[in-house]
């Protein structure tokens, strides 16, 4: 306290937080119509899908999800997933888990849709890579819940804000590993493609993307894991789901409920991780 006053006496404090707030103010008013529209679309979309999934009997949805896991990752992981889902259903957190899963799903799709092209550009352009790399480093060292705050003025409390901040938080690995995957391709391979007269597009589609796919998939896997952790944290701004259960348990001082919800998050994380890792591994084998 004392040092800060002393500091303030000598050099006036830089009004950093005031600046940021006024910038956000300006942006929110300027973009109000757009953000409100996006917010509505998202809220309705998510509400619709979650509502539909809620009408399904849990066992049906579980079988569908386990079927997907089987197709991608094989029998062992499918059985594990089945037991995990049954357990979550049993402890009464199925509904919460479904809404968390829907949020993770949407956030991941958006993060990949944005991150993949950015990663490709960063993989091909040295200059862009030099600009993007420190930004990614910065983004990954910021504490997670800082991302929640700017989302609220734009999108209000709720699922849309949760998804937006989740996208921002979870996008770095996809960008970084896509760029890395393209950059680590043997120089002579790229020269070979060039020497035959490939266009930039041909080189990308026939060489660089297929060869960087395992690395890209590892990035997407990390993005999914980050998205899950962020969606849980986003319960603070009303995202609901498993995070909401934890949040409520904290407020009501019920460690048992909090722990159960936490365990459900861990189980979901393990299932998502194993299944998506399997995709990456399969790609590696094929290449």
């Amino acid at each position: 306290m004392g040092t800060r006053e002393l500091m303030g006496d000598i050099i006036p404090r830089v009004p950093l937080s005031e600046w940021i707030e006024s910038i956000l103010d300006v942006l929110t008013t300027l973009l109000a119509t757009a953000t409100r529209a996006v917010s509505t679309v998202f809220r309705n979309g998510i509400r619709g899908i979650t509502g539909f999934l809620d009408t399904l009997p849990p066992i049906v949805l579980i079988l569908v999800l386990v079927g997907i896991a089987w197709a991608i990752a094989g029998r062992r992981i499918a059985i594990g997933s089945f037991l995990g889902f049954l357990f979550i259903w049993n402890i009464g957190l199925w509904g919460a888990m479904v809404s968390t899963l829907v949020l993770v799903f949407f956030a991941t799709i958006l993060a990949v849709a944005l991150g993949l092209p950015l990663g490709i550009v960063a993989g091909l352009s040295d200059r862009f890579f030099l600009i993007v790399k420190p930004i990614l480093d910065f983004m990954q060292t910021m504490p997670a819940f800082v991302y929640l705050i700017p989302a609220i003025p734009f999108f209000g409390l709720g699922a849309t804000s949760a998804i937006m901040s989740t996208v921002i938080f979870s996008i770095p690995p996809t960008i970084r590993l896509t760029a890395l995957g393209i950059r680590q391709i043997d120089k002579e391979l790229v020269e070979a493609a060039d020497s035959f007269g490939s266009t930039t597009y041909q080189k990308l589609v026939k060489l660089q993307l297929p060869l960087s796919l395992p690395t890209v998939m590892a990035g997407i896997n990390q993005t999914i894991m980050l998205a899950l952790s962020m969606v849980v944290i986003a319960s603070m701004i009303g995202a609901g789901g498993l995070g909401g259960e934890v949040w409520r348990a904290i407020q009501r001082l019920r460690p048992g409920d909090g722990f159960s919800a936490g365990l459900a998050v861990v189980i979901l994380a393990m299932i998502l991780d194993r299944v998506t890792q399997k995709i990456a591994a399969q790609d590696r084998k094929a290449s």
Partner: peptide, 10 residues
């Protein structure tokens, strides 16, 4: 056409 020391096969 070019042939490389490390073969550079895809």
């Amino acid at each position: 056409s070019m042939v490389f020391q490390s073969f550079a096969l895809f």
